[in-house]
Amino acid sequence: MDYDQLKTFLVVTELNSFTKAAAFLHITQSTVTSRIAKLEEFYSVRLFDRNNRDLRLSSKGLELLPFMQQQLNLYEKTKQIATQHTHSQELKIAVTQSTWNSFPVRRVLSLHEKIPNLHVQITTDHSPAIIQHVLDGRIDYGIVFNLPRAKAIRAWHLGRHHYALYRHTDVNIDADFDLASLQNERYIKVSWGIPFQKWLEKHGIQHHKSPLEVSHGNLAKQIIIEQKGMGFLPQESVVNEPSLVEVPLGVEWAYQDYYAICLKNHPETTVYQTMNHFLNEGKVKGEIENIDH
């Protein structure tokens, strides 16, 4: 007795026809007949009473019907559990647009060597939204700027972005150019967060308004290149970009730390254990710093 035989028996019972059951299951009528015959052989009983015009369950078939339905339900339930287990091997990660270039995608994808059926989903968002999604359980890990204050979150220090002022090569500036001169240039503004804003204020730029303000660095870089302007960008994002040059100002550039985060009390699944091992391994090698709230 197997799943197909049980399924066929129950469909025949519902439709009262071998022909209709064959059409419903997309098999031949001879296959339906064969499956029912094997079930009858297994139970050593006749399951249906047949005549030229009518098909109905025998007394034994009627008696066995609820138990066969239970067996089919168990088959389908165990199959569902097995499928859920396979699909549960997922790793959902959200990163900010600006940390994308620094995100160790290759190393994360190498987790497939330890978890062959792992499905990795990577999305981008702003740090506050990513932190909230981690707290809500909508994503497993986030890569965010600044250390979250939530005690429920575990964090690893991944690195630091330094922000320098870049201009398009077609933009000429005076020899005495300084930060105050930005108001006279095609300055593309990006809100890099509180640490960056404090750095601007430290250097005398508090409420400077730019003709154009954008929400993330990749877009700012694209606009600076296309519109031949200038703006602050992470140094890591401007590598191998010949049309952009750094504007020397003789000051220490602003910086911002970024972190990998997850819930402290997450389920101890293979995915979490492997990902945490990956992060802790980086910590041991000096690549990552573990943070305790």
Rank of each mutant, 00 (worst) to 15 (best):
Y3S: 07
L10R: 09
S17A: 13
S17W: 06
S17N: 10
F18Y: 15
K20F: 04
K20Q: 08
A21N: 04
A22P: 03
L25K: 05
R35V: 01
A37Y: 06
F42W: 10
L47M: 03
R50I: 04
N51W: 01
N52T: 07
R53K: 15
S58R: 00
E63G: 09
L64V: 01
F67V: 08
F67Q: 12
Q70M: 10
Q70E: 08
L74V: 04
T78R: 15
K79D: 03
A82P: 00
H87C: 05
H87T: 12
H87E: 08
H87P: 00
Q89E: 05
E90P: 02
L91N: 10
A94S: 15
N101K: 13
F103Q: 02
F103P: 00
F103G: 04
V105E: 06
V108N: 06
E113R: 13
E113W: 02
H119D: 08
V120F: 14
D125A: 15
H126Q: 12
I130Y: 13
Q132K: 14
H133C: 02
H133I: 00
L135R: 09
R138C: 01
I139K: 02
I143A: 07
A150G: 03
A152W: 07
A155H: 02
H157A: 12
G159K: 01
G159I: 01
R160V: 06
T169D: 09
D170K: 14
V171G: 07
R186T: 08
Y187Q: 00
Y187A: 01
I188E: 02
K189S: 12
W192D: 00
K198M: 03
W199R: 07
L200N: 11
Q206V: 13
K209Y: 12
H216I: 05
G217P: 02
K221A: 05
I223A: 14
E226R: 12
E226Q: 07
G231C: 11
V238R: 06
P248Y: 04
L249F: 09
D257E: 11
L263Q: 12
P267G: 13
T269A: 04
G286K: 09
I288S: 00
H293W: 13
H293P: 14
H293R: 15
